[in-house]
């Protein structure tokens, strides 16, 4: 019965484990290249300013002009809307006045 057998000796276990030492895995050329490419990228990233780093974090793996252009476009749109919308609302003030003339209560008996 396997359960009743004495267990392996410490010395033999050490011999078994020592046999594992020989099996070191050799890294592939592809892995080495990936690791060194990461070094280049990490180093290139260190030279970036705070805006570039932020844009990389929000919008990774694109040229820097894309997040910059998106930021400029959204700023322009925001400014344009902020400039045009108040004057449009002022021009329409006559049309919108009726909204304030609606009575603040309803008479349920009125329609019956």
């Amino acid at each position: 019965m396997a359960e009743n057998e004495p267990i392996l000796s410490e010395a033999q276990l050490d011999r078994f484990l020592a046999s594992l030492r020989a099996g070191e895995v050799a890294p592939s050329a592809n892995l080495q290249a990936r690791v060194m490419k990461d070094f280049d990228n990490a180093w290139a990233e260190r030279g970036l300013g705070p805006f570039s780093r932020l844009s990389r974090a929000i919008w990774p793996e694109v040229p820097i002009w894309q997040p910059a252009a998106a930021l400029v476009a959204s700023l322009s749109l925001g400014l344009a809307v902020g400039y045009v919308l108040p004057s449009m609302l002022l021009n329409q003030s006559g049309d919108t006045a009726f909204a304030f003339e609606v009575p603040g209560y309803f008479d349920l008996a009125e329609g019956s």
Binding site: E5, I7, L8, S9, F16
Partner: peptide, 10 residues
């Protein structure tokens, strides 16, 4: 390990 590998003892 010694328990699991007992079948391989000398």
């Amino acid at each position: 390990l010694r328990e699991r590998l007992k079948a391989y003892r000398d």
